[in-house]
């Protein structure tokens, strides 16, 4: 909460430049990466390429926003990639029916939110650990996604909402606009609504939250519903980009990229501390890394290794930096 509070931030900056640096979080790392790639390869900093980076970040960013809500409560949602696949399948299957085709997007969102509510109900109602529930859901929903398309790829070359995946508005891809809208809405919920405070409160101290009269179960169901809904939205975006969906392959390991973005953004893995801006920076770091390494001609195998090490290194750096300051 501390770093998302402008009063505290301004005060911290005044007292001590180190604290100001801390409030910036991973932004310096992002800037550093951009500068380094721009120096190595002139094409990196071109407007066209930067738009491509933003577009590549967009689906992960949407998932990472959902993941931020979940991790802030001290949970995790490992099923996001599978939910994304199931939602994309639902969207494409509905879009192939001439009578129902315009219900494709609502269908995808409903599938996503529905699975999310199911996760939330198991976690809040039956009191199972989030890791276990969503790990099970990761596998089970992947199966459902394959079942929906009878384990084949579903195509729709005439997809009515394909503009979402491939079109622009004033030069900005729709994918990017959608992702930034999700960031803005998430920021509003976390920062300006009662629910947002409750989410931080539950992550910080669930017992105290209950004693304060917060209905912890309802908030948890909401949080997993949101992460499911955003995974559904991710499904719409992915299917719009590809005109197709494959229940087996689509969205594999997407949840891990989302977790990486959230953690890179400085959100505490045990909950209660973090911000949506951090997640935005985290998702951009991941996208910049992928894009920059490709442009620099680094072989695919090495890209994986470098990306992994940078994620660990960046978080280690953050730990080291914040050690002397606030508790994490």
């Amino acid at each position: 909460m501390q770093t998302s509070n402008p009063q505290a931030r301004a005060e911290a900056a005044r007292r001590n430049p180190r604290a100001a640096l801390r409030a910036l979080g991973m932004l310096p790392v992002l800037v550093l990466l951009c500068v380094a790639f721009a120096l190595v390869n002139g094409r990196f900093a071109s407007p066209q390429n930067l738009i491509i980076v933003a577009q590549q970040a967009s689906i992960n960013l949407v998932l990472a926003c959902g993941m931020t809500f979940v991790i802030l409560t001290g949970g995790i949602d490992l099923s996001m990639g599978s939910i994304l696949a199931a939602a994309a399948m639902a969207a494409l299957i509905v879009s192939l029916d001439p009578n129902l085709m315009y219900l494709a997007i609502p269908a995808a969102l409903a599938v996503g939110a529905g699975f999310g509510v199911l996760n939330g109900a198991l976690i809040a109602g039956v009191r199972l650990p989030p890791f276990i529930v969503t790990l099970g859901a990761l596998t089970a929903i992947r199966g459902v996604a394959r079942l929906m398309g009878r384990d084949t790829t579903v195509f729709n070359s005439d997809l009515w909402y394909a503009i979402i995946g491939n079109g622009n508005f004033l030069g900005v891809p729709w994918l990017v606009i959608i992702a930034l809208s999700v960031v803005g809405l998430s920021w509003f919920v976390l920062r300006w609504t009662v629910l947002g405070v409750y989410i931080y409160a539950i992550g910080g101290n669930p017992d105290a939250a209950r004693l304060s009269g917060i209905r912890v179960g309802l908030v948890l169901i909401f949080v997993y519903a949101i992460s499911g809904l955003l995974a559904g939205l991710g499904g719409v975006m992915a299917s719009a980009r590809l005109f197709a969906a494959n229940g087996l392959q689509l969205g594999q390991a997407y949840e891990l990229d989302a977790v990486a973005a959230v953690i890179l953004g400085g959100t505490s893995f045990v909950g209660g501390i973090g911000s949506i801006w951090g997640t935005l920076v985290g998702a951009l770091i991941i996208a910049v890394l992928s894009n920059g390494l490709i442009l620099s001609g680094v072989p695919d195998v090495w890209q994986y290794i470098i990306k992994g090490l940078i994620i660990i290194g960046a978080v280690a750096l953050d730990r080291f930096r914040t050690e002397s300051g606030a508790r994490t």
Partner: peptide, 12 residues
Amino acid sequence: GQGLFLDMSIED
């Protein structure tokens, strides 16, 4: 353990 939200502001 059960009262305060230690990471949150006094205001919250």
